[in-house]
Nucleic acid binder design. Structure first.
Length: 205
DNA sequence: CGAATGATCGGCT
DNA sequence: GCCGATCATTCGA
């Protein structure tokens, strides 16, 4: 019924970044880059809450050229470079100044798989193609040049659609985030969410 | 201005 | 399954 499938701004303004993270599961991330449209269903996310989350780039009000996008009002893309080469795609949520974000960690390939394979320089489809935050951005053609663009305005190259898939609580597995041991007590928080039984997520722990 | 660091990937055993 | 390469960004002086 929704002719406009693009998620609306109110979605990104939800108060709780954890709720938003779970709600993003089952949604479709679409990119229109180089004249090619590629789509993947989101099957794994991770929440980063500014201010009180030590694992977040914006912890302790760290405000730099790179992280300033996170402080904007929800509904924009925050793409940053990790380890020098990996582009990681985040969705900024919450109100301006809160610096909440949801990292997209894994996708299930949907449309234009051939293009994704080509971008990944692969010949055969396998979970590795889009499982992992650094690989899925490559498959969709997302780079840091798209950091700061809106996901809600019309005619932007990246957006998120709701195609009616509803993931209920029972299908969501929560687990601790990875690679954040340095974050002390925050490292134990179960802020990583994945769709149960999806073969497109990284292996369960 | 320089050194340390990390929300990772891919190749090898 | 594990180990290490790789480089932009950050922070302190």
């Amino acid at each position: 019924m929704a002719t406009e499938k693009r998620l609306d701004k109110s979605f990104y303004l939800q108060k709780d970044v954890l709720t938003a993270s779970k709600a993003l599961l089952g949604k479709y991330l679409v990119s229109n880059i180089d004249g090619r449209i590629t789509t993947g269903m989101i099957v794994e996310t991770e929440a980063y809450r500014g201010s009180d989350d030590k694992a977040c780039h914006a912890y302790n009000n760290r405000y730099t050229e790179r992280t300033k996008v996170m402080y904007r009002e929800g509904g924009v893309a925050y793409v940053y470079l990790c380890y020098g080469i990996h582009h990681l795609f985040n969705v900024v949520t919450g109100k301006q100044g809160e610096a909440h974000a949801v990292l997209i960690r894994a996708l299930e390939p949907i449309d234009n798989i051939a293009t994704m394979l080509q971008r990944r320089k692969m010949t055969k489809i396998q979970p590795r193609m889009t499982a992992g935050p650094g690989t899925l951005t490559k498959a969709l053609g997302i780079t840091t040049q798209y950091s700061g663009i809106s996901l809600v305005e019309k005619d932007t190259p990246i957006w998120i659609e709701d195609r009616g898939t509803n993931i209920i609580e029972d299908q969501i597995i929560a687990s601790p985030r990875v690679g954040v041991d340095y974050a002390e007590e925050c490292a134990a928080w179960d802020w990583r969410f994945r769709v149960k039984d999806s073969r497109w997520t990284s292996k369960a722990k």
